[in-house]
Amino acid sequence: MILAVVLALCAAAFFFLPAGRALFEDTRDKLGKAIPITPVDIKATTETRDHPAANTSDGVSNSYWGAKSPGASITYTFRAPFRLVDVIITNGAGATPKEYAPQARALEVDLETTTASGEKQTKKLTLNDKPGPQTFPTAVSDVKTVRLTLKSPVGLTQGRQLAVAEVEFFKRS
């Protein structure tokens, strides 16, 4: 009888360990304080002359990265792997309605994280078509790079570009 109980506990631990680990990490995320982390390198597949990709990480929301078409992506590389807790995206050309409206925006973004071991994970983020920062919980461990790919443009007409004002990353402290 004791052997059956021990075997049942071992089997339960084996099958529920991944779910338990995820629950443990999520609890630590919620109880801990998220602190900002800055990328060491930023590269985009396309950018306009006056609106480089680096504008998404300059700390102000009145400058932006200008992409020419949907499908454009921007990749952020970090110095050391970390637990990515949240991503804040300020969509459009700025955080105020006056700055936001003149350029096109993406209503969907694919967020692809790559770990130090090369494992990739993709999440589809749906953005509201409104000015200001939008927070997305991510809960991904061991992140080394983050790629954002712009999808579902709105307002993309002649003379306008897809704009992303700011992207902020937060790690668990």
Rank of each mutant, 00 (worst) to 15 (best):
E25H: 14
E108K: 15
P39W: 09
F24M: 10
E119R: 15
L23P: 04
F78R: 00
R49K: 14
I88W: 09
A53G: 02
H51Y: 15
R105D: 07
N55T: 02
G71R: 01
A93E: 07
N62P: 03
E25K: 13
D58F: 01
N62D: 14
N55E: 08
Q103P: 03
F24N: 10
N62K: 04
T46K: 10
A72D: 07
I89M: 00
Q134I: 08
P70H: 06
P131S: 08
D58S: 05
I35V: 15
I37L: 09
W65C: 04
F78S: 00
L31C: 10
L125R: 10
D29S: 13
A34V: 03
R83E: 12
R79C: 08
E25S: 14
L84W: 00
I88G: 03
P52L: 11
P102G: 06
K120I: 06
Q134G: 04
E108R: 14
P36C: 01
R21S: 09
N55R: 07
P36K: 02
T113F: 04
P133I: 03
P102L: 08
D58T: 00
L111D: 02
I42A: 01
T45N: 12
R105A: 11
A67P: 01
S117W: 04
T56I: 12
P133M: 10
T45S: 15
E99Q: 14
A67K: 05
A54R: 13
G66K: 02
G132T: 04
P70M: 00
T46L: 08
P81Y: 10
